[in-house]
Design a protein around this nucleic acid. Structure first.
Length: 262
DNA sequence: CGGCATGTTTCGCC
DNA sequence: AGGCGAAACATGCC
């Protein structure tokens, strides 16, 4: 579930936490740095931001970084902004909780029973961090310009799709969004990065700015033309009706249309 | 049981 | 030195 779009949805929903003071923290210590609970406890939340796929909860103490891995998800004040779930059954076991964070309002001295922030992650590939180093991230996918893409690609020469998934090249693109952007840009996922023309660069960056916000408004990275259902069926291309192709590139499934992606 | 999964990090090899 | 690709990580689902 979590790509940059999901991080953006959660970030927006978490704005309601700004101004609150953290009064209790619980975490799965296997996914948190040493001293995590004590370092965060008592801090007041000053802002919630997103950088690529990372959600940042800034406080007057450390900044909390939420990294969702493959199956992480976030609940704010008991509500899940994203309801489309990874698993069909047993979808929200307490044993999969990795972070529970309670806050108190300025005029409220009684602790609320329900965590203000709860991260649940079945596969436990997600991580919690404090003051994460984000200096290695490339330009953000939602606002990517052609110049930023050129700078991010540098002298890279590998297949464009896995290159786009490198967060140092572009921040926030995941497997589904990368396929969707290339699909609409008309660029084949195996095209060597150094073979792209100026038009290809323009098309990819433009589709990041145009297509990703559409998916965001529709609910996230699973709401593109290459939805999970379309990806699984590998039927006709939604754009031209030609047969879609599903193949593995560097260990990740790529779905694309050989007819219009060149 | 085998294969697959929206991600990141590590390691060996150019 | 830096890029590339495969493997590892961890767990659930079909």
């Amino acid at each position: 579930m979590p790509e940059g779009l999901e991080a953006e949805i959660w970030t927006r929903a978490a704005q309601t936490l700004v101004g609150r003071t953290i009064e209790r923290v619980w975490c799965d210590q296997r996914v948190a740095p040493p001293g995590f609970v004590d370092l965060l406890n008592g801090s007041t939340i000053g802002g919630v931001w997103r950088r690529g796929k990372v959600v940042l909860v800034e406080t007057d103490g450390p900044t909390l970084g939420l990294h969702f891995g493959m199956t992480g998800r976030l609940e704010i004040d008991g509500a899940a902004p994203i309801t489309r779930l990874e698993y069909a059954s047993n979808r929200d076991r307490a044993a999969w909780d990795r972070l529970r964070l309670w806050t108190k309002a300025t005029n409220d001295t009684s602790p609320s029973e329900r965590p203000a922030l709860r991260m649940n992650d079945p596969r436990r590939l997600g991580r919690l961090s404090l003051d994460p180093d984000l200096s290695g991230l490339g330009a953000d996918c939602l606002t990517l310009s052609a110049d930023e893409l050129i700078a991010g690609l540098g002298r890279r020469s590998g297949a464009i799709k896995p290159t786009l998934l490198d967060q140092a090249v572009v921040a926030g693109l995941g497997n589904l969004c990368a396929d969707e952007v290339l699909f609409h840009a008309g660029v084949a996922p195996r095209r060597p990065a150094d073979s792209l023309t100026g038009d290809d660069i323009d098309a990819i960056s433009e589709q990041c700015r145009l297509r990703l916000p559409v998916m965001l408004a529709a609910g996230g990275s699973t709401h593109g033309d290459l939805s999970p259902e379309v990806r699984a069926a590998v039927g006709a291309c939604p754009l031209d009706g030609a047969p879609l192709d599903r193949t593995s590139i560097n260990g990740r499934t790529a779905v694309w249309c050989p007819a219009h992606q060149r």
